[in-house]
Nucleic acid binder design. Structure first.
Length: 681
DNA sequence: GGTGAATTCAG
DNA sequence: TGAATTCAC
């Protein structure tokens, strides 16, 4: 079945190419495969309800809209057009399109976020059952997550090791391919197209400005890449630490939507690298290495997510679950508004809400302030980034926030607090960035721009700054934040030790194991919904029959856990493993009978109206932030979540799969024993 | 040119 | 904060 090789040559077969975050025609393996088979029906399904909380934010939807229009016009010039469907269930929409076009094949490219892993596996199974030949490909990564392992076949747990391995693989990432010259159109006229609505009237106004700064779409992405590589790249290593830097590539939104192939980026970078190495241009070489590293972090985010598909919800290091987060919605509001009293933080937050963009360094600054100074739960910050960033990307953002909050073995030191005042002089030495985003401080001399609270009164007066009036005093003093952090960490270690002792004594079943404790709910004001009426997901026969969703087996944790696993399990794993990469079609996601779960009927909550707003909007919405929605807002990626929340239940009649699923989660609930690795206090 | 101080920077 | 590297003498 999945080993079957498609016979090429356009023998009257029609293939659906299901586009998701691979909105390009160049170096798109799914599209290329479809073109080889015969007629093509390009399809995009807009089913944001499937994303749960992670309904795309306003700017992200704006980008998607432009990108799809661009893709459609490319298809039109090649002889077909993009079919668009509005849906609450991608799989049933796929079936509709199969039926109306008489397609025999379905091709798509892999995604690695947890929801997609489940949905895609389900799509594969259901459509295969219907006699459709389904193939999926790697279009998003240099190497598939399961290709990168240490000498023992285990996945890496630190970035540096992972990336070294990637850079020293015995084979290169697949070379990028050219776009097809011509496409034989499938019977797209037989298929009704839904008009997709990505913005409401109020959002349109705010979105208008975006088009001045950004050009979504795959061929624009390509131009941006070429321009970056032939221009600012060489200076990347010297400039990349300045908040205002013109050396940023600005490629991340293009990469998020797959308008750009990382493999193409990689190949072009490698060429430059060789060139500069030959010329002895060390700055250039260093720049390439540094930029490659950021590509590597993106790879790593998918890798981590694939191996631990709850990283957007749970810390990877076990002890973090004992950290006493400060659940203070007022702090959260002040941070979002850019009114913390620390100019660099505030400038960043205002830039983010005004433009949907933030320089990488400044993301670290504001996130670090959020987690270490305010001690707010990192998932809130991640959610806000998700809602506001143009390049919002679940895997990358989860990795970033976990890094900042000390939840990874190679995170920043837990007890380290960066002082925004010093960071200010580092990343914005002349205060230009702060002056641009904080007009109330514009006239303050550079000497005081990053610490106005120390400025002499006459200086403040001359600059028209009234602390506490038109610019706030620091919300918290850094020194006391440090003390508070120490206390919190002490408490965390104490609780962790108690829990460990309890487990070792066998007295308690893992006191407070994070898989059983509901995560802190998001505050209401970022969760308020204003979405299209949800359609009933379970109305059609297929959805009802296949209510149970599936996740592809996570190869690594399965193997790593092999001492506890039965040989039967391992065998089935090994067998499936062998069917993974195929030439010329690289069939991928492992097919070993996957674990199943079912989710209950509570409709997912999402957030559509939280995009960029003006100050009044935010202030207004946060005034209702007190009333917290009871519990059930957070989807939890574990079999035994609290009953009030959206929940996944292990299917009992499927012993093999459920046991492997549990096994995987038992393993991950040990949280890698990374706690030992990261004892750094 | 060797040594401690200062600085840089962190996946 | 701490290791690594550069700087000043």
């Amino acid at each position: 079945m999945s080993n079957e090789v498609v016979s090429g040559g356009g023998g009257g077969c029609t293939s659906i190419v299901w586009f998701r975050r691979d909105l390009r025609i160049e170096d798109n393996p799914a599209l290329a495969a479809a073109v080889r088979v015969g007629a093509v029906v390009p399809l995009f399904i807009w089913a944001p309800e499937e994303e749960g909380h992670y309904y795309p934010g306003r700017v992200s939807r704006w980008w998607l809209k432009q990108s799809l229009a661009h893709l459609d016009s490319s298809f039109k010039s090649l002889g077909t057009s993009l079919i668009t469907k509005r849906s609450t269930d991608s799989v049933s929409s796929l079936i509709d399109v199969v039926k109306s076009t008489g397609a025999t094949h379905l091709f798509f490219n892999h995604l690695y976020d947890p929801l997609s892993l489940v949905r895609d596996q389900r799509a594969k199974e259901i459509l295969t059952d219907l006699g459709i030949i389904v193939r999926s490909f790697n279009a998003d990564l240099l190497y598939e997550p399961w290709e990168i392992n240490d000498d023992h076949g285990h996945p890496f747990t630190t970035f540096t090791e992972f990336w070294n391995k990637c850079l020293n693989m015995p084979y290169d990432p697949a070379a990028p391919t050219l776009p097809p010259k011509r496409i034989i159109s499938g019977d797209v006229l037989q298929c009704s197209c839904d008009k997709l609505i990505f913005e409401n009237e109020t959002e349109k106004g705010s979105n208008a400005l975006l088009a001045r700064a950004w050009s979504p779409g795959w061929s624009n992405a390509d131009k941006a890449l070429t321009a970056f590589i032939s221009g600012p790249l060489i200076e990347y290593s010297v400039n990349c630490r300045k908040a205002d830097s013109a050396t940023t590539s600005f490629l991340s939104p293009h990469l998020h939507f797959g308008e750009l192939s990382v493999r193409k980026v990689f190949h072009l970078l490698r060429i430059k690298q060789m060139l500069w190495a030959n010329e002895g241009n060390t700055t250039g070489e260093e720049s390439v290495n540094l930029f490659l590293k950021s590509i590597g972090l993106r790879e790593y985010s998918r890798y981590i997510n694939f191996n631990h598909p709850y990283t957007h919800e749970k810390p990877l290091l076990g002890h973090l679950k004992f950290f006493p987060w400060v659940v203070d919605e007022n702090y959260f509001k002040v941070w979002r508004l850019g009114r913390t009293g620390y100019p660099l933080v505030d400038a960043g937050m205002r830039e983010l809400w005004a433009t949907g963009w933030l320089h990488d360094r400044i993301r670290v600054v504001v996130a670090s302030f959020f987690v270490k100074v305010l001690q707010l739960p990192w998932r809130w910050g991640m959610k806000y980034f998700w809602d506001t960033l143009l390049d919002a990307d679940l895997e990358s953002d989860a990795l970033g926030w976990q890094y900042i909050s000390g939840s990874l073995p190679d995170s920043r030191a837990l007890d380290r607090i960066d002082n925004p005042q010093f960071e200010g002089y580092k990343f914005d030495p002349n205060g230009e960035y702060v002056r641009r985003w904080l007009p109330e401080l514009a006239r303050l001399p550079t000497e005081w721009i990053h610490h106005p609270w120390n400025a002499p009164e006459p200086v403040l007066q001359a600059a028209g700054v009234e602390l506490g009036m038109n610019y706030p005093l620091p919300i918290l003093e850094i020194g006391s934040a440090k003390d508070r952090l120490q206390e919190s960490l002490a408490e965390m270690w104490q609780l962790e030790a108690a829990s460990r002792a309890a487990i070792e004594n066998g007295t308690e079943e893992g006191l407070g194991d994070s898989s059983d404790s509901a995560p802190i709910a998001f505050p209401q004001d970022i969760m308020d919904v204003d979405h299209e009426p949800a359609r009933n997901v379970n109305t059609n026969a297929f959805a009802r029959r296949h209510q149970d969703q599936m996740v592809p087996s996570m190869t690594s944790s399965f193997l790593r856990n092999s001492d506890e696993s039965s040989s039967e399990h391992r065998e089935s794993y090994e067998n499936s493993r062998q069917e993974v990469p195929q030439e010329p079609l690289r069939e991928t996601l492992n097919q070993r009978s996957p674990p199943t779960f079912r989710h209950n009927n509570s409709p997912p909550q999402f957030n559509i109206n939280m995009g960029l707003r003006n100050v009044e909007d935010i202030a207004e919405s946060s005034s209702i932030s007190r009333s917290t929605r009871g519990g059930g807002v957070v989807p939890i990626w574990c079999p035994s979540s609290s009953s009030s929340s959206e929940q996944f239940v292990v299917e009992e009649n499927d012993t093999e799969s459920s046991s492997s699923y549990l096994q995987r989660h038992q393993h991950t609930n040990e949280l890698i024993d990374w706690r030992r690795l990261s004892r750094a206090r």
